[in-house]
């Protein structure tokens, strides 16, 4: 299968790979997917006092499109408020990465990961 240039770029040079302290009250962690399905994403956000996402990190087990989807959203989320980040839709991700129909689920997973990270952060406040 041919990958889009955008997917290859994120896959070869993934942005914001890493891990933050899950116990930190400023950090929200979203882990979605399952090894059985071949995709697991862990997305983490660090939120400042104003409710703005000051940092985002990810690690993903999955195909190139899954890695690219999570890498892309970490870039987008930095500097957004929680509300803005919560508005990110999978369609925007799949459009930006030119994902083929069989890979749309990767963008859905990334949207789920954002929501899970935000929920986790809010539950700690």
């Amino acid at each position: 299968m041919a990958y889009s240039e955008q997917v290859i770029d994120h896959y070869e040079n993934p942005r914001n790979v890493g891990k933050m302290d899950e116990k930190d009250a400023q950090v929200g962690t979203g882990m979605v997917g399952a090894p059985a399905c071949g995709d697991v994403m862990r997305l983490q956000i660090k939120v400042d006092d104003q409710g703005v996402i000051e940092d985002a990190k990810f690690k993903t087990y999955g195909c190139g499109s899954a890695i690219a989807s999570s890498s892309l959203v970490t870039e987008w989320m930095k500097g957004m408020t929680l509300d803005q980040a919560g508005e990110i839709k999978n369609a925007a991700i799949s459009e930006e990465l030119a994902l083929p129909p069989v890979k749309i689920h990767c963008s859905v997973l990334a949207e789920d990961a954002i929501k899970a990270a935000i929920d986790d952060y809010k539950s700690k406040q």
Binding site: P14, V32, G33, A36, C37, V40, R42, Y61, I67
Partner: peptide, 24 residues
């Protein structure tokens, strides 16, 4: 593996079978 959360968990000694995964 540096990109993989599962590798992290393995390295931290987490038993992957004990995790509640959200299958999709």
């Amino acid at each position: 593996r540096e990109l993989s959360p599962l590798w992290d968990m393995y390295k931290d000694g987490v038993d992957l079978d004990s995790v509640q995964w959200t299958a999709h």
